[in-house]
Amino acid sequence: MGFLEGKFKKPNIITVCYDKLMNAARSRSLWYLTFGVACCAIEFMAAAASHYDFERYGMFFRASPRQVDMIIISGTITRKYAPVVKRIYEQMAEPKYVVAMGSCAISGGPFYDSYSVVQGVDKVIPVDVYVQGCPPRPEALYMGLLKLKDVINRETIVVK
């Protein structure tokens, strides 16, 4: 416990700000869903694997949407696939966060006026952070995830 070591010889009480404690816990253990849609998923995998390593930020992959806090939409969402994304989002437990990764997930990207692509995942589910690029480099994704930490730290118990 670092600076608190040896300060408490017997059981004691600490008073903290609830919001700060909860937000610190939440933003430091963002578990994400193993979920890759299109070519952005390759860069997402590179960011998650050992070279860049998500786990040093406390992010760990889970295979079930019921166990995760965050979903990274990494790629093109087609009209046929959109209901599945919505279903996955609804299965996640609160609090839940969405990162839209790449131009496709933001606005449809290169397939903006295609006949089968949804123009941005925010037409289907609410998005917290947008990471632009086609595909974004892992550094850009990390920037987005640090922004997501800011989003979480702004939350209070009064208003979600």
Binding site: R79, K80, A82, P83, K86, R87, G108, Y112, D113, V117, V118, Q119, K123, V124
Partner: peptide, 12 residues
Amino acid sequence: WEEREYLPPKKF
């Protein structure tokens, strides 16, 4: 693409 809505299908 100005007229057409690229929204997900309603059926699910």
